[in-house]
Amino acid sequence: MTNSLHPPAQQAELHRTWVRRFRPVSDPRLRLVCFPHAGGAASFYRTWPQWLAPDVEVGAVCYPGREERIAEPCIDRMAELADRIAAALVPWLDRPLVFFGHSMGASVAHEVALRLEARFGQVVQRLIVSARAAPSHLRPTGVSGWSDEELLAHLRALGGSFSAALDHPDLRDLMLPIIRSDYRLVDGYEPYAPPLLSAPVTGYLGAEDPHVTEEDMRAWAATTRAGHTLTVLPGDHFYLMPQAARVVTEIDGLLSRH
């Protein structure tokens, strides 16, 4: 990742492309940046501002290939995706940042946090990771090479919004290439160095998650110099959907300490 910055107008456009603001705040105390899961989109976080203090601004990362960026090719390499998101977040470095990532989004958030810290010093005040094994516990799955039928069965087992959407042929045909691209990113992921963050790491996990264990989540403690906690809640890989109000309210309490 280079240290060169884009000209201001180009930087502002880059930021607008990559970050969706659901409740703009004119003078935020801090900003919460949310990273979607594989196959997910920024709108997954659209309801979150209602549970956060009014001086907290929420931004959700818009990956290429979905929603308003549907015409753009997906990015299937973690290094490229994290580099480009880090560059797009430069205009938000005037306020403290907290990152939240669900599933694949937790790894993306971690990679972006490492890049910002390496480039600017400690920037992210806290990393919140959800339903994703720590880098040391990630296991190759090869999911990106599975047949459509195998991939669909895997996605249905995860639960959440995928299950209903994949029953509609048009949505299924739209989503599968995006999901497969994201799984190529996951399958080819090699963690960035340096390995340790200066920010604390907070973890959340659904107790019935079919693919991520408590041990996987507790291993995030080895990624930071500043401490780690884990909360296990009822639910599967997408426990977050029915319990969004509870989780975001807890996050709001964490944000009040910054």
Score class of each variant (00 low, 15 high):
251 I>S: 04
237 H>E: 06
242 P>C: 03
235 G>K: 12
234 P>R: 02
247 V>C: 05
230 L>V: 07
232 V>N: 02
244 A>T: 15
242 P>N: 01
245 A>Y: 08
227 G>T: 06
251 I>F: 02
252 D>T: 07
255 L>N: 08
228 H>K: 08
243 Q>R: 15
241 M>I: 14
238 F>V: 04
237 H>K: 08
242 P>Q: 06
239 Y>Q: 06
246 R>W: 07
228 H>Y: 14
254 L>C: 12
228 H>S: 12
232 V>E: 03
250 E>K: 09
240 L>V: 15
241 M>A: 14
249 T>M: 03
253 G>E: 09
235 G>A: 14
240 L>Y: 00
255 L>F: 03
225 R>D: 14
243 Q>M: 10
229 T>E: 01
254 L>D: 15
251 I>V: 10
237 H>W: 07
247 V>F: 00
245 A>W: 07
253 G>N: 06
233 L>P: 08
234 P>V: 04
226 A>R: 03
238 F>E: 00
227 G>F: 05
255 L>G: 10
248 V>H: 04
242 P>L: 00
227 G>D: 00
249 T>G: 09
235 G>T: 10
255 L>R: 05
229 T>Y: 02
235 G>D: 07
255 L>M: 09
239 Y>V: 06
247 V>S: 05
239 Y>F: 15
249 T>D: 02
229 T>D: 02
225 R>E: 15
238 F>C: 00
228 H>Q: 14
230 L>P: 06
225 R>I: 07
245 A>D: 11
240 L>F: 13
249 T>F: 03
244 A>P: 13
255 L>I: 09
248 V>R: 02
232 V>A: 02
239 Y>K: 14
242 P>E: 05
228 H>P: 12
231 T>N: 12
237 H>R: 05
248 V>D: 08
232 V>F: 01
252 D>S: 15
256 S>V: 10
242 P>A: 02
255 L>Q: 08
232 V>R: 03
238 F>M: 02
237 H>T: 14
252 D>P: 08
248 V>S: 06
256 S>I: 08
228 H>G: 09
224 T>A: 04
242 P>Y: 05
247 V>Y: 05
238 F>I: 03
252 D>N: 15
227 G>V: 04
232 V>H: 00
248 V>W: 01
234 P>D: 10
239 Y>W: 09
246 R>M: 14
252 D>K: 11
249 T>N: 08
236 D>P: 00
226 A>D: 08
256 S>T: 13
225 R>P: 10
256 S>K: 12
242 P>G: 05
229 T>N: 00
251 I>L: 01
224 T>C: 01
